[in-house]
């Protein structure tokens, strides 16, 4: 129990800390940072349930006014901004990433985690993010999707890196990852 609480809290803190390292900007106001990589990491390392709770905790802290988003942003405004769909998707993205990593028995581990990150970390975030943009901007889903796809190459690279990182982690500290390698 203590271990779960501690890991959920520390991963929420890790996402915040990743937001504080220098940002890679591609414009358009959609922040491209290591933070979305953190969502993939949380799901892959903690597993579906704890990954979900960890990201939910992170969002709650942003909502009550802590500047944990990249660039020191936060507060309730982040949840009504046009990009809020991406933010609200964090727990669900981590959950699906974790679920795939837990269920899919695929070797090597880097491939398994990379695929899960693409589906959970990119698929879920882009879907919910685009729905958010559609609601806010008064454009069609397809038009908003085209806007978002500009960021796809960068995020695919992040998914690949997450796969490599988690594979290294599973090797260095197998007791710390939420999945088993059979």
């Amino acid at each position: 129990m203590e271990k779960n609480v501690a890991q959920i809290a520390l991963f929420a803190a890790l996402i915040a800390a990743l937001g504080a390292i220098p940002q890679i900007t591609l414009g358009f106001g959609v922040p491209i940072t290591a933070q979305s990589m953190g969502v993939m990491l949380a799901g892959a390392v903690l597993g579906a349930k704890r990954g979900f709770l960890s990201m939910l905790l992170f969002l709650l802290l942003v909502a009550i006014g802590l500047p944990l988003l990249s660039g020191g942003r936060g507060g309730l405004g982040a949840f009504v901004a046009p990009t809020s769909g991406f933010l609200i998707a964090f727990p669900f993205g981590a959950w699906l990433t974790g679920l795939i990593v837990e269920k899919l028995q695929l070797r090597p581990v880097a491939l398994r985690v990379g695929l899960a990150s693409v589906v959970g970390g990119i698929g879920v975030l882009y879907l919910m993010g685009t729905i958010g943009l559609t609601l806010a901007l008064g454009k069609s889903f397809a038009e908003c999707a085209r806007l978002v796809l500009v960021f796809l190459p960068g995020d695919v690279i992040k998914a690949v890196l997450t796969g490599l990182l988690v594979a290294a982690l599973a090797k260095a500290r197998p007791q710390s990852v939420g999945f088993t390698v059979r």
Partner: peptide, 24 residues
């Protein structure tokens, strides 16, 4: 670059271990 994410993740996991112990 991005490779710094791994040691940061390890730091977070280490801190989680210490925190769990302190809580207990």
């Amino acid at each position: 670059n991005w490779r710094i994410v791994l040691p940061m993740t390890l730091l977070a996991l280490d801190d989680a271990d210490h925190l769990a112990e302190a809580l207990r």
